[in-house]
Write a protein that binds this DNA or RNA. Structure first.
Ligand SMILES: [Mn+2]
Ligand SMILES: [Mn+2]
Ligand SMILES: [Zn+2]
Ligand SMILES: [Zn+2]
Lengths: 129, 129
DNA sequence: TAATTAATGCAACCGAGTTGCGTTTTGCAA
DNA sequence: TTGCAAAACGCAACTCGGTTGCATTAATTA
């Protein structure tokens, strides 16, 4: 495998992801780093950051791809995402609920590789009551 | 709301979904009912079947949308999908694991509406050992 | 059988993501 | 410091899943 290089565009994208409290899509990220690089470059940067275990990809309930920082992963250099994601039907934001971990039990002969757990609903910010 | 009508295209799509042991995408479904209707019609039929609670939409781990029959839903006329989905990284098929139900506990002020629980791995058919 | 309108076909469009290729940068070593 | 290999980039073209508008067809119901 080739050794990764650091560029200002890559750093800009990673900064935006780290700064955000919720997961961001490529269009959102491109909007935020506009001027630093081409939109295709954002796609390629995201792929690299995922490969380097710096961020992880979250599929929202409507199929849109979003990217969030790896919090617990990088410390032990392993990529375990057995945590919940919350997708708000109001503000459309999807966030990691790192604290809530879930273990499930499968029928036999099913080999688990990764968990994708997303809950759709209304986030605290969008509560009206 | 307008009352739904039954057409042969709609019935053909529903038959394919009911017949299948795993969830099907629009392109797959269009391929299977080819000749009976236009590809746009398949999209509209799927939207209607979802609205009528006859099928449900499953987002796969790569963001592709798939459709599966509602097994337990239609009997009690409610749409609860708190069951697991299994997505095989070999054959790419995604299926409902209706038996395995999971209840999770959220932080306060999060209002749950729907659960999307998908496990990625290797299905029994694709096991080599 | 006629009227109402849900459903369809078709063409055009949209947006996320990909690919190819020539050019620019980065990191490292001479 | 400079030179080099290849990682990263810009740009244009493309793919593909999905949507929209509108005129036409067909399912229901009286
Ligand atoms: Mn996460
Ligand atoms: Mn299901
Ligand atoms: Zn919200
Ligand atoms: Zn399989």
């Amino acid at each position: 495998m080739s050794l990764p290089r650091n560029t200002k565009a890559k750093q800009a994208v990673l900064d935006e992801i780290n700064r955000s409290t919720y997961a961001l899509s490529q269009p959102e990220l491109f909007e935020r780093v506009k001027g630093t690089c081409d939109r295709v470059t954002v796609y390629r940067i995201l792929d690299r950051l995922v490969a380097e275990n710096k961020i992880h990809r979250i599929v929202n309930v409507d199929g849109t791809l979003n990217y969030a920082a790896c919090i617990q992963c990088d410390t032990h250099n392993m990529h375990a995402h057995d945590h919940l994601h919350f997708s708000c039907i109001e503000c459309k934001k999807i966030e990691c609920l790192s604290e809530q971990s879930v273990q499930v039990q499968l029928p036999s002969h099913y080999q688990i590789k990764e968990l994708f757990l997303t809950i759709s609903g209304i986030c605290p910010t969008c509560q009206v009551d």
